[in-house]
């Protein structure tokens, strides 16, 4: 009395279920950026302090870190001391992307905590961050001298990140 094809729906369902269960135990934030190996998206904005125009071409010519942060973001204050450390080593330039922030709040925050950034792109609407595929602050992109994205890290960066990701690139 059983129709042959009627086994199909439940089989498909079980397969989908397998993927759903296996996906549940994995961290979705580990999905790498589709930007890796590709040039940074074009953008044009102003710098946080000087309000000068800054575009993606201004950053070309050397390997740098692009750190996405905001004064409102808790994770950013955790990683901030470490970013100051990296900057004091003078091994790599760090740019900031100030994400969904207010200018005075951001400036205030940096004046209190110190400013490790060579220059800061001001992105109050978050539209540049959207092009970068930012899920939320903090995030850090490692970008080479030709403006190609080499690595993306979600969440606060730390010593392990510096040793594993940044050092090999600098030493090359």
């Amino acid at each position: 009395m059983i129709h042959k094809l009627s086994v199909l729906p439940i089989s498909i369902f079980l397969v989908i279920l397998y993927f759903l269960f296996s996906g549940l135990s994995k961290d979705p934030t580990l999905i790498p950026s589709p930007l890796i190996g590709k040039p940074v998206p074009e953008f044009s904005s102003t710098t946080l302090f000087e309000k000068k125009t800054i575009t993606n071409t201004d950053l070309l010519g050397e390997t740098y870190l692009l750190n996405v942060w905001g004064s409102w973001c808790y994770g950013c204050s955790i990683e901030h001391d470490f970013i100051m450390d990296i900057n004091s080593k003078k091994t790599i330039k760090i740019y900031g992307l100030n994400y969904k922030d207010k200018r005075f709040a951001a400036i205030n925050w940096l004046e209190k905590k110190g400013n490790p950034y060579k220059s800061i792109i001001f992105d109050d609407t978050g539209s540049i961050a959207i092009d970068f595929g930012v899920y939320g602050a903090p995030e850090t992109f490692l970008i080479n001298d030709e403006g190609i994205v080499i690595h993306k890290h979600i969440g606060p960066i730390d010593q392990a990140y510096y040793k594993k990701i940044i050092l090999p690139v600098i030493e090359k």
Binding site: I10, L17, L20
Partner: peptide
């Protein structure tokens, strides 16, 4: 997900047995 597997799984099993 557990609820979904239960409800959908059971109803599709029922479908498998009775749809004829």
């Amino acid at each position: 997900l557990l609820f979904l597997s239960l409800v959908i799984g059971l109803s599709l099993a029922l479908y498998f047995l009775k749809s004829k």
